[in-house]
């Protein structure tokens, strides 16, 4: 089994505050990897390091290495190309105030695809993959903002998939959604891993237990434990992991 990401000795500072401390982690291909931990533990920060979304924040300093299939994403890799390969879904659904079609086509158009029928093919394919095609196929020209919250989030997943990424980063994608929408997205994630790697940050430990192949537990910017989900939830090695997953804190 090969790795899609290899992270070594990663430190991240916001000004003087160290948000990530010596993170070492290999993320395997075509699996679901979950990041869990209490608020402010660095799990979202690490996620945003993987597509360089932290670059936009003032005063961020990053040292160490992040390899995407062997090439360093912080050394000589074009950010735009990186983000084509590593898609992202946010905590709150953020469809653009455009039509459903234009939302999905936004990524491909950014990469220079102009051909109408090609775009139509991509839009249909992506919406089908995100299990929302049947709900929106008759309203592709309607505003994406007219969809429900759960639909908007699946639309955002479709929008990310339209760029045909190798990795999908999901930052607490269901925390703003109702239980039924959450379930649909979890099912979707399980299906998506046939084609790509998914890294999901979640506050919800049951969610990690349900969908993740391996889980990393973060505390104060450190990876305390990282192993198969099964192992972590049954026989955690570190007492702090034990305390967290049994609900003693967090």
């Amino acid at each position: 089994m090969s790795n899609v990401f290899e992270i070594s000795d990663l430190d991240l500072f916001y000004g003087n505050f160290q948000a990530l401390k010596k993170v070492n982690m290999d993320v395997p291909e075509r699996q679901v990897t979950a990041f869990i931990g209490p608020s402010g533990c660095g799990k979202s920060t690490l996620l945003k390091t993987l597509n360089r979304m932290n670059d936009a924040i003032e005063g961020v300093k990053i040292t160490g290495q992040v390899l995407l299939r062997g090439s360093d994403i912080y050394q000589g890799m074009d950010v735009s190309k990186l983000r084509k390969r590593v898609g992202m879904v946010f905590q709150n659904p953020n469809p653009f105030p455009l039509s459903v079609f234009d939302n999905i086509a936004y990524g491909p158009r950014t990469y220079g695809i102009r051909n109408k029928s090609k775009l139509q093919g991509i839009v249909e394919h992506s919406l089908k993959k995100a299990a929302i095609w049947d709900e929106v196929k008759d309203r592709l020209n309607k505003s994406a903002l007219s969809l429900s919250g759960g639909q908007q989030q699946r639309l955002c997943i479709a929008r990310a998939l339209a760029a045909e990424p190798e990795v999908l980063l999901m930052d607490e994608p269901t925390s703003a959604l109702d239980p039924i929408s959450t379930l649909r997205i979890e099912d979707l994630v399980m299906e998506l891993k046939q084609d790509l790697s998914v890294i999901i940050v979640t506050h919800n430990m049951q969610q990690a237990a349900r969908i993740a192949d391996q889980t990393a537990f973060f505390l104060h910017g450190e990876v305390i434990e990282y192993e198969s989900t099964e192992q972590m939830f049954h026989l955690p090695k570190d007492p702090r992991t034990q305390d967290y997953i049994t609900g003693r804190f967090g």
Binding site: S80, R83, F96
Partner: peptide, 27 residues
């Protein structure tokens, strides 16, 4: 204009100019 729109656009590989012209300004 919500920052989430800009982040959504950046995350799809769009640069600042494209984000401004296609998303922020029309909004």
């Amino acid at each position: 204009v919500p920052q989430a729109y800009r982040e959504g656009s950046w995350a799809l590989g769009a640069g600042r100019l494209r984000t401004t012209m296609r998303i922020v300004l029309p909004t």
